[in-house]
Design a protein around this nucleic acid. Structure first.
Lengths: 107, 107
DNA sequence: AAGACCTTGACATGCTTGTGGTAAGGTTGG
DNA sequence: CCAACCTTACCACAAGCATGTCAAGGTCTT
């Protein structure tokens, strides 16, 4: 039942121990602790660390972006507000012709 | 059919003209241009600017976060990768008891 | 033609992110 | 008990973000 400690987890995921502590502070990957306070990384956390790395490498995603995605997942009100915003960006991608109505209103 | 120019749009949305130019550079709110190159903000853009402000004020959202949400909306592969990640965070919020299986595997 | 706008481009600045160190001290396993 | 880990707490620092301001020049309205 003992997971890997921070150095072992780092070795297996390609992060530095320093970054693993940083990620915990950022709330992105939070391991359990042993009685004496050592971080204990289990399979779940190792997978999170690996998929986090994949996100950065393959998509150039920042850690703040990932934290934001988690927020979006947890806060329905935020999600709704962002959806409202996105509706606008989708509209502005539409054809010029489809904006006649608006142009009339602003004229 | 002429929209508002940058100073007028700024006055009506609470942004500075400087920030309106910045937002255009960031791809967040991109107005049309008049023949001579002046930015022309229509109803759609004004609404985008207002909802962008609301996102920041009410939710403390950064502009980079909003840009990321737009990316999520446009890139299905990215969305899928983030979904994979999110699955992990949902699991780690689960009850201790529900992780017996994993603990056995790591032991 | 003048004044008030606009354009781009540059420089400055304060804050945050991501990352590395280092120091002082606790834990663990042989 | 000693070496090799771990802990927290700092300091540093490059890069990027969010803003402001200023300069040199174009446009528009009266």
């Amino acid at each position: 039942m003992k997971g890997l400690n921070v150095g072992e987890a780092a070795a297996q995921t390609g992060w530095s121990p320093r970054m693993l502590r940083y990620l915990e502070g950022a709330g992105l990957v939070v391991p359990d602790r042993s009685r004496s306070g050592y971080r204990q990384y289990g399979l779940l956390e190792l997978n999170q660390l690996r998929s986090l790395r994949a996100l950065r490498e393959r998509f150039g995603v920042e850690l703040t972006d990932v934290a934001f995605a988690a927020r979006l997942d947890r806060e329905p009100a935020l999600r709704a507000a962002v959806e409202t915003w996105l509706a606008g960006t989708r509209l502005s991608a539409l054809d010029w012709e489809q904006r006649k109505h608006e142009r009339l209103l602003v004229a």
